[in-house]
Design a protein around this nucleic acid. Sequence first.
RNA 1: GGCGGCAUAGCCAAGUGGUAAGGCAAAGGUCUGCAAAACCUCUACUCCCCGGUUCAAAUCCGGGUGCCGCCUCCA
Length: 467
Amino acid sequence: MIELYNSLTSQKETFVPLKEGEVKIYACGPTVYNYFHIGNARPFIFFDVVRRYLKYAGYQVTFIQNFTDVDDKIIKKAAEEGKEPAQIAEQYIQEYFIDADALGIERADSYPRVSENMDAIISLIQTLMDKGLAYEKDGNVYYRVREFDDYGKLSKRDIEELEAGARIEISEEKEDPLDFALWKKKKDGEIYWDSPFGQGRPGWHIECSAMAQKYLGDQIDIHGGGADLIFPHHENEIAQSEGATGKQFAKYWMHNGYININNEKMSKSLGNFFTVRDIAKEFDLEAVRFFVLNAHYRSPINFSRELVESASSSLQRIYNAKNHLDYLLSQGLQADASEETSEEVLKQLQQYQAQFCAAMDNDFNTADAIAAIFELVRFINIHIHESSTRGDVLGAKTMLDELTDVLGIACQSKQELLDEDIEKLIAMRQEARKKKDFVLADKIRDELKEKGILLEDTKEGVKWKKN
RNA sequence: GGCGGCAUAGCCAAGUGGUAAGGCAAAGGUCUGCAAAACCUCUACUCCCCGGUUCAAAUCCGGGUGCCGCCUCCA
């Protein structure tokens, strides 16, 4: 039984999908005008894990993430670089995949783009106008916020206080300062689309309502994104979608916390951000993934290079255990060993699996789930060795792979075939060691270390790993 | 001003009523030619402070202090 914290109700709830056995997830994706930063990466990583775990739990999951490819910032960037907005968008969509792949994020079932779904967007705006929830003024279309009774239910905001606080854009056209744009009239020289309300382009919020509906239907199970989207973006999505259909839009809303720099939110406007692309120059991005998952998704976390290094060391511990198991399997264990995992080992392995699942069931507590993996690692280090049966080693390997796969960590195969030269060097060093020529032996070891090959002399033989 | 969050060892971080997970780092030990890895031991009589409820609180309640976020484009 999975429990998750629903931002809509501000409490943990038992997860019950709209349709048994199936889960529909919509996650807000990036506006593609630049490389994405570590803060942006958090929801991508986290919702990837949500999806993986729900699959692991047996659900059939449909996961949709949009690309916002029509936007002020893209238009601005295009103008700066003398390119078409579509070129900019296409470029950064490709860059997105480079970073996302390196972070171990599985591909979504679909990546709808604003530019390719204009019909659905226009049609939804039309529906809202027909229902009296939207109005057109001089080529612009606005949402009539006061006509939607539930406005503010997600962000817990009172409509009157919103107006009082008011750093809201003043516009002569709007009937009410709270109203927000669904369609923006074309400006000179900017890209535009034809519509019944004139030439222009959609406002920011309408795309998610339209695309979620088109790709997943009127109602979805989980809608996710960063906490800074709660207001106004997600609040407005609810107004649009529920205003149009009269049905509850998303059953569960999940929002991740921020990534901070020195306890301050990392954001493009503050300029205190690290792009994932830059971090990739210094670290394997898998360490960033581990770093993100090492804390509960709703807690704010501070980012620093030191913390990624620490994550990298933690990850190495898991790899060491995996490499050890691979080594045992490559060495040919006891001749009479069966392929079956013994009952006592299986029982232990399943206990760690249960611990892992209990953690994940509890609002996707990845930090606790990682602890379960480390406890499994300790068990393996103690109880699985050269005198274990092949069945036990295989069983341990399968379980460790299974759990790490759910989180998408320690999944890279680092054991690649050695060059013949390197094999020769290792053999030479063994010879030297036999002759107790440790000077030569250590020299060879140092040489290999410089090439990124770390040697370990164990009772079981010489093992190596890539640094 | 309104709404919300956070404060646990040197660092990161779980735990939300039953007597402090896990990881990183450091120290000692076992093993090793030496390393590495691994294992063992050691690192919070205590969870920001002060009250209260309770047989029992890091966990609940009240009050402080500090930090942060949203209310505006933002993951």
